[in-house]
């Protein structure tokens, strides 16, 4: 390289003869085209490559499921974990509540005119069976909360969460956002599920009927 060149100067384009050389100064000064060195490949490296390839074969064999189009688990014995130890309902409830924040918001205040609040709502802090019934089956249509009318759709959670999770989230919302009602036992959810689990979403009237007919 020309790192030791003197300070560059400008040169005026010379007349025809020199001009061709001048134009190609870069092409003339460059090194010859690259050649191949012929160092041998280290044998240890080749052995490593071979071993590594064997690992690849082993990994495919061990993790390819059953090679079918519907064999999605890479190992047939990838058993789901056993039943989890019971959790603190307030912790589990907070986790489940993440699914509710879309509408009822993280602060439990809902969205004015659209999604009812949980904070200070009689439906939350009142009858435990009625709360469980709402959580399990959801709500459809006009609905009054604290004197305000709402018209929206609450999804049914019965296929998504088990009794423990529903009880936990009920317990959580009854004790959060300033609410101060007691916990909901898993057995209550279990009983309500048995009673009305097959029904569709509640209407306001239907829910009142259910609550009244203890």
């Amino acid at each position: 390289m020309q790192s030791d060149q003197p300070k560059p100067e400008h040169r005026r384009a010379p007349e025809m003869q020199d001009r061709i050389l001048e134009l190609h100064a870069a092409a003339m000064r460059e090194m010859s085209d690259p050649r191949d060195g012929m160092r041998p490949t280290p044998v240890a490296f080749l052995i490593c490559c071979l071993l590594f390839t064997m690992w690849g074969g082993y990994y495919i064999g061990a993790n390819a499921g059953d090679w079918t189009g519907d064999g999605l688990a890479e190992q047939a014995n990838r058993a789901p974990a056993g039943p989890a130890a019971p959790q603190n309902p307030m912790v589990l409830g907070a986790e489940v509540y993440n699914a509710c924040t879309q509408c009822h918001q993280a602060d439990g205040k809902g969205l004015a005119g659209q999604f009812p609040p949980l904070a200070g709502s009689e439906f939350v802090t009142g009858d435990e069976r009625r709360l469980a019934a709402i959580l399990l089956n959801g709500i459809n249509g006009d609905f009054h909360v604290n004197g305000q009318i709402y018209n929206s759709q609450m999804p049914a959670w019965k296929d998504v969460y088990n009794d423990e999770e529903i009880a936990a989230v009920a317990t959580y919302i009854r004790a959060s956002f300033g609410n101060k009602a007691g916990p909901v036992a898993k057995t209550i959810v279990e009983a309500v599920r048995k009673q009305v689990g097959a029904a569709g979403a509640w209407s306001e009237a239907g829910l009142a009927e259910f609550a009244a007919g203890k």
Binding site: A99, C103, Q105, F115, S152, Q153, V160
Partner: peptide, 22 residues
Amino acid sequence: GHRQPSATWHALHLYDPRITSP
């Protein structure tokens, strides 16, 4: 669609996501 069947929610959320999801 399974966890959020409410058309109202979707409308508000698409119109301005900050309404439903601060």
